[in-house]
Design a protein around this nucleic acid. Structure first.
Lengths: 176, 176
DNA sequence: ATAACTCAGACAATTATAGTCCGAGTTATG
DNA sequence: CATAACTCGGACTATAATTGTCTGAGTTAT
């Protein structure tokens, strides 16, 4: 599982907690102490998949395109990683030397038995990931933070948009 | 999933079909048209895990150390890939800028909600892989080949051990 | 009209995988 | 008993993918 997925999911959770107000990939990156440039490369993928919607301009940013309960973890992963299979069968069974480069049809018919096992395991994993939505994760998280925390977060983001035109802290990777 | 796992599983199936007679990693590689050198690097891992046992010398090779029904696909994967997790949590939640590099204990307590989702999915996958043994796969495969095939295979391997001392076809990657 | 922001795609550096090569030890053969 | 071919085993290199950086084009409030 790639780091892009981890970053993306964390960002989507913040987006879910800020309905109506767009958050920019830059602010999200600084807010969480991760690379701005890299995050700026994962968001377009989420937009193409219809998970977020982008708005441009000085106060633009990203917004969740659907309800958190309608976005599954699996969708997010596929959007970012590109739905590549866990196991790519190289059809070893057809290379057996006794065939002399001419594998008979019975040998290559259907799905390779090893491949089939992997496909079942992959399906089990994907089913598990598809059963969890952003709302589920946000729910698990909700009870932990004290009441004043969400206010602190809103304040941090507001200060951020306020001080746009001044202050020179615009270097990449402000934190790290 | 790495290619080493695919190669290893295919070899183990051939080993399962040849009880009592050791097969060398070299013969197994040539027999299936894959790299000798690379296969020679995956077998030691299987031996350390107690899945195969090695015998040295001119007629040596590998033997299944246990019954095919007692070897699960999951074991083989862990032996070759080293049991590394599907997702390594970077604890993004603790880097939130509002904490100013001092995350409070409630934020980092327990398992990250995103990480938990991934762990569940990984468990689902591993459970599926653990439920399948080499015997199960061999069974799926058994009905497909015609009766004379296993004889052809035995003959190929026998010819191989027979012509050991002569014939210059010992270059790496005979096929490909 | 400016200036700072936004997105978006082209460009390196790092890391892990796939594959190659050579050395040490073992066993049957002459 | 000496040879020769085989075995395993680990150190080395090339390739592919991921991570991360940089520069450009377009948009919106001041």
């Amino acid at each position: 599982m790639t780091a892009g997925v981890e970053y993306g999911l964390h960002c989507l959770l913040w987006l879910a907690s800020s309905p109506g107000t767009p958050l920019s990939s830059r602010d999200l990156a600084d807010f969480q102490g991760i690379s701005r440039s890299f995050l700026a490369k994962v968001f377009p993928k989420l937009e193409k998949a219809g998970i977020v919607s982008a708005s441009e301009g000085i106060n633009g940013g990203y917004l969740l395109a659907r309800q958190p309960g309608d976005i599954t973890v699996l969708e997010v992963i596929d959007a970012i990683e590109g739905k590549k299979p866990l196991f790519d069968c190289q059809e070893i069974r057809g290379r057996c030397a006794v065939y002399r480069e001419r594998p008979p049809s019975w040998a290559t018919k259907g799905v390779c038995a090893i491949h089939a096992v992997m496909l079942r395991a992959e399906k089990a994993m994907r089913d598990s990931l598809a059963s969890q939505t952003l709302a589920d994760i946000a729910g698990d998280l909700g009870g932990k933070a004290p009441p004043e925390f969400s206010d602190d977060v809103r304040k941090w983001l507001a200060d951020r948009t306020k001080g746009r035109t001044r202050s020179g802290a615009t270097e990449d990777r402000a934190l790290s």
